[in-house]
Amino acid sequence: MEPVTRVAGTAYPWGQKNVDTDVIIPAHWLKTIKRSGLGRGAFEVVRAQPGNIFDDPRYAGSPILIAGDNFGCGSSREHAAWALADMGVRAVIAPSFSDIFSGNAFKNGIVTVVLPQEAIDRLIAVAQDGEITVDLETMTVTTPYQDRFPFTLDPFRRRCLIEGLDEVGLTLAKDTAISKFEEAMHRQRPWIKDRSGNAGIAVEGAGRT
């Protein structure tokens, strides 16, 4: 993952609530075995409308997206985060995010910033013609008009973002602890491992499916 400490630039002043991942990337774009190239499908339905915010020359290519409550709800598809990254979005600011989406965003170097609705309203006003800065060192969102909105981030996620850490690699280094847990688990809950206890017994034979 590329390290990220600061995202600055224009922002899409969208403010839409309950943006689901089917809107961010419709299902027919999911038939890919790669992570790249999904920016073309991002917000396809929204972009089919004339005058939409994503094709407005004032905002096109913005690194920041401002949205409403519950951004990224619905499907777990990480393609939503890949699509945003591919269209150049590095930070999304909203009053709340779906839990699965914020995890996916983080793993792709996209900062999810939670701010109260009043701050969102102000940032949408500023973003009409001004730039916005998200800073992970100072943990603030600032504007050229002296606005300063502090935000919080899970400390582990913040560190991974700033240092660009590979989470799988970090956890693989915990092999001893994981192996120890597995040994204890195999003693206490042996059925987790020996899961083919009834192999050969026809399920439908029991009158059930």
Partner: peptide, 23 residues
Amino acid sequence: AFGIGTSEVEHVLATQTLILSPS
């Protein structure tokens, strides 16, 4: 039981664990 993204799928395949905060 909960849904995960593809990076987490990779994490579970490789380590059989996930880093999670309590809900």
